[in-house]
Design a protein around this nucleic acid. Structure first.
Lengths: 341, 341
DNA sequence: GCTCGTTGTTTAAACGTTTTAGCAACTAGT
DNA sequence: ACTAGTTGCTAAAACGTTTAAACAACGAGC
């Protein structure tokens, strides 16, 4: 089996130095005033033998890996899976590879993964952060690695960029829609989480209840439960709150569990109960009745995230000026919120 | 900012050689007869200063990267997303990281990605292959990297391992179920693809039609279409074949598009048309009516894939004896196939 | 004839590990 | 007293790049 060629082999074969070869291959021939004739010869030979530089050696020397670390809550969640696909595509186009991991919202696991990514000299990070990793992220940024957060924010992390949606406003708009459709007693099912986007969604709900003079009915489901458990909790919430005429779910999987719960209780949507879910999903479109949802602009989020990170990777300086990009969602009105008959 | 410590710094500080430190850190102290006292001292100091070896340098020297390359059709497909999550979890537990990419069933893109993975000295590969990459995979295996295929197989690739399900049998069983429910004119919607699993599913259909004396009605939707396009094709197929009383979809996304098509035509499931889909999905369970499907054992597939690969990574020898693991699916009978009333 | 600048290329160090081969010192066996 | 074996450790090469610094050769300007 033929051994892999190195730059040394190339140099030897052409009777020149590795330096020259390196310069030529890195497009620094002009700058280094290497004769066109030689450039020609080297490129031709390199092409001929199909030489590929050893990325590891290069990384070792330069300290750059051309790898981006991607950390999402769970790659099995369609929202994150779709974002991951778009980001990956875009990254590849720009010569970056993606190494990913699911955090499962586990702070300790996340810390470990970050440390592993760091060991691997990942060039930049894209993170949908769980709670409690402010310190680690700060330290990453301090040591010169750009970090772009998305979906949820971390306070007090100087220099971190963020791409997200206007959660408060989105939920508020959704609530307003429900009120206009005649719903008067609207419940809110969210996660027992301090993550910023969850807090914002809750605030949106509270703001709306205040403004429209509604009573608050909040159920905070605890984290990382099995799907069955979540359904059970929502069932019992709905049983306790017999007078609810509509319900808003703060995430896609809460929404799905909510639909199961509603089915189990034999409630009719939208007559017995109106439904609105944050985060769209093919399921919501095809469900009978179709479910009104707040759709996040997945393409836009991905685009912004990756282009922001690429920009940071370009500017070698650490830029203390961080960006915070807030995108709009779209309320997709469907049958589940068509008012009480 | 404090520089990252190297093994040389450790050695210097303790007035010993880097060799010794390296041996100790790699657990070869006993073997190399290094005194317990020294081992103790080194470990303590290393712990104290939080030294972490540079993975790149190690990889450069050893040729091993501890990275597994994962190639799926699309990470946005729930089937692959779930598999990816399980595989990743398991890999991390065993000290391997995952670098992934979506092939989009594009042969050229896949070849490129494989070459990039190779450049990065990925230790092993997990691939749901598109058509036409037999040569590349063979070459990977020849050069000593284990490859485990899943979901679909590649013929004539010596030494490649495979984990999949019994597609022929699965579809056959599904067809039998439909026949027993009284359906007599069953259509089959699949992809215009030569991938083994698609061919197998088609064979399952053909076998069943032959055995039960049914007429074949096959629609081969072409690859990589937009969702709208697929729906349109299925609509026109159903229009042409007015006499169909049931239809089988060969993949989850064809099934979803199929449901849209059926809705568009205003057909009632299961009275006007019975439905069966290969690959389960939360949507199928919650759809009204619920959709009968053939569920693949996602956990088992992931477990087998990763443990097979880890086994291969352990045995340094290239093992020409390849394994072919075929798992059973489960027919989940739901309302969409409850017969003609 | 001397310095100076330009052109085109090379020398050698550096990145941080792992590992082969070997060395020094001591013990034990003859 | 000499060899043989053991113990405990190390020197140095190797992995394949990049890059700062230097150098040789030559023409131009004084």
């Amino acid at each position: 089996m033929k051994r892999k060629l190195s730059i040394i082999d190339i140099a030897k074969h052409l009777n020149i130095s590795t330096t020259t070869v390196s310069f030529i291959l890195n497009g620094r021939a002009k700058e280094k005033r290497i004769s066109d004739e030689l450039v020609e010869r080297v490129l031709k030979f390199v092409e001929e033998v199909g030489y590929k530089p050893n990325v590891l050696a290069r990384s070792l020397r330069t300290g750059k890996s051309n790898i981006i670390g991607l950390l999402v809550e769970s790659i099995a969640n369609p929202f994150f899976a779709n974002i991951a696909r778009l980001i990956e595509n875009n990254a590849y186009k720009n010569g970056y590879k993606i190494i990913y991991s699911s955090t499962e919202n586990d702070t300790e696991k996340t810390k470990q993964i970050l440390s592993i990514f760091r060991e691997r000299h990942v060039d930049g990070y894209i993170i949908a952060p769980p709670e409690g990793i402010e310190e680690e992220v700060t330290s990453l940024i301090k040591s010169g690695s750009p970090v772009v957060l998305f979906d949820r924010f971390l306070e007090n992390v100087p220099g971190v960029d963020f791409v997200g949606v206007n959660s408060v406003q989105s939920i508020y708009t959704g609530m307003k829609h429900l009120v206009l459709e005649g719903y008067k007693n609207i419940g809110f099912v969210t996660l027992d989480s301090l993550q910023s986007q969850m807090q914002d969604r809750l605030h949106g709900y509270e703001q709306a209840t205040a403004e429209f003079k509604l009573t608050e009915h909040v159920k905070e489901v605890s984290y990382n439960q099995s799907s069955e458990n979540i359904v059970r909790q929502i069932v019992s919430f709905l049983k306790r709150k017999r007078d609810l005429d509509a319900i808003v779910f703060a995430t896609n999987y809460l929404g799905i569990s909510g639909l199961r719960a509603i089915k189990e209780l034999g409630l009719k949507i939208p007559e017995d109960i109106g439904v609105l879910v944050f985060d769209d999903n093919e399921l919501f479109e095809l469900y009978t009745p179709s479910i009104t949802s707040i759709a996040q602009p997945i393409e836009k989020i991905s685009d912004q995230v990756i282009s922001l990170l690429l920009k940071r990777l370009d500017q070698q300086e650490i830029d203390p000026q961080n960006e915070r990009i807030i995108l709009d969602t779209e309320l997709t009105v469907r049958d589940s919120s068509s008012g009480r008959k």
